[in-house]
């Protein structure tokens, strides 16, 4: 609560204990409705699965508020456990807005099922989430959201968003405070950027290494490596790694501890 109320000293000028002020000092009150709760999230898709992962640390400034505050949620499940859900959402940025957004989307996906008698497709959910975010264009949900699931063909689908709803389907995306550390690593190891097939030609004839869907074990290891690297160099990332894997068989949740320093 203290972090939400910005207290500032009344005056910059030097004051004396014996000086008599003729009028009451003016006090500037302010309220900043957002806090940066730090942390990072990461999503990668495969041929028949999608992985959404996030660290579980929640910070405010240099303080750690929680060592287990999940950032990845099941959307459209039957009860509190999220049983029967087929969509995943991760939110990083302002945790309160993230929580509110997750509750909104969860309700929308459930209402869709009750009204239409069929589960909402990931494509439809992705478009709906964009609309929800843009509806608050001038008082945004201060979050970077990533949506994951399986598309109509059963292949992994991943959508990433900016805070006001601009979105794109991608193969992989990192978001949050360590996104700048993780993203170039992913470009190199998932999309094989800057990698070429040795001896395939000279100069412009040199063939780039083709990127294709990676097996699940490889992707899981890349996610672990990305986060252990981020933990080493970013103070807002750590404590635990929550990985959600969505396949045709449902959603699997894997939790592994990360360094707590």
């Amino acid at each position: 609560m203290t972090s939400l109320v910005n207290q500032q000293p009344h005056s910059e000028a030097i004051g004396y204990s014996f000086s008599q002020s003729t009028h009451a000092p003016n006090k500037q009150h302010s309220f900043y409705p957002y806090t940066d709760n730090g942390g990072s999230t990461l999503g990668i898709t495969g041929a028949d699965f999608a992985i959404l992962a996030g660290d579980t640390r929640s910070v405010a400034g240099y303080n750690i508020n929680s060592r287990y505050a999940p950032k990845v949620f099941k959307i459209g499940g039957d009860d509190e456990t999220g049983e029967g859900a087929h969509i995943l959402l991760s939110v990083v940025g302002f945790a309160a807005d993230g929580h509110a957004l997750k509750e909104r989307l969860d309700a929308v996906v459930k209402m869709y099922k009750y009204q239409h008698g069929k589960p909402m497709s990931v494509r439809a959910c992705a478009q709906r989430l964009s609309t929800i975010l843009y509806q608050k264009r001038f008082f945004p949900y201060y979050v970077h959201a990533i949506l994951a699931g399986l598309d109509e063909e059963g292949t992994g689908a991943l959508y990433s968003y900016d805070p006001v709803g601009s979105y794109e389907r991608e193969q992989c995306r990192a978001a949050g405070s360590a996104a700048s550390l993780i993203m170039p690593f992913l470009d190199n190891q998932v999309n094989f950027k800057n990698q070429y097939i040795p001896g395939s030609g000279e100069g412009h004839a040199l063939e780039p290494k083709k990127a294709g869907p990676l097996p699940r074990s490889t992707v899981e290891q890349l996610v672990r490596d990305a986060f252990t690297s981020a933990v080493e160099r970013h103070i807002e990332v750590g404590d635990g790694l929550q990985m959600m894997v969505i396949t045709a068989n449902g959603i699997e949740e894997i939790y592994t501890p990360l360094k707590q320093d």
Partner: peptide, 11 residues
């Protein structure tokens, strides 16, 4: 430098 920290720490 931030991007380099990420790639170096990973590779």
């Amino acid at each position: 430098s931030e991007q380099l920290f990420g790639t170096c720490e990973g590779l």
